[in-house]
């Protein structure tokens, strides 16, 4: 005859634990999102840096060899690839810190 009461009290206990856990999870997610935002900002810079440097190299090589649009186009695409490589590298950098 004791069983139903036990189950009711157990339900209450479970509810309390669940509430505590969701509060904790929400806090950790909030903290993570700050770090992720900083990381995302960093990665966007890495990508743009690659494209920008590729563009600059292409532009100056074009001036040097007078092959106007071609090297610019090739090096901008290579710069994009380098940007993605940068993102890949920097995503591993964080593991050491």
């Amino acid at each position: 005859m004791k069983k139903p009461q036990d189950i009711a009290s157990l339900d209450k206990k479970i509810d309390v634990f669940k509430k505590k856990r969701t509060a904790k999870q929400a806090q950790s997610v909030r903290e993570d999102s700050h770090q992720n935002a900083a990381k995302g900002f960093q990665m966007s810079i890495e990508l743009i840096a690659g494209v920008f440097i590729g563009f600059c190299i292409g532009y100056f090589l074009d001036l040097l060899f007078q092959t106007k649009p071609w090297l610019l186009a090739v090096f901008t695409v290579l710069g994009g690839a380098a940007g993605i490589l940068n993102i890949y590298k920097s995503s591993h950098e964080g593991e050491n810190i």
Binding site: A49, I53, L78, A82, N86
Partner: peptide, 24 residues
């Protein structure tokens, strides 16, 4: 021929991304 320019640009672009982060 494909990897060498990509690695070279990656090497050269790192100072740029370092600079932009601090300056921004």
């Amino acid at each position: 021929p494909l990897v060498v320019p990509i690695e070279a640009i990656s090497l050269l672009s790192k100072p740029f991304s370092l600079t932009v982060r601090l300056v921004a």
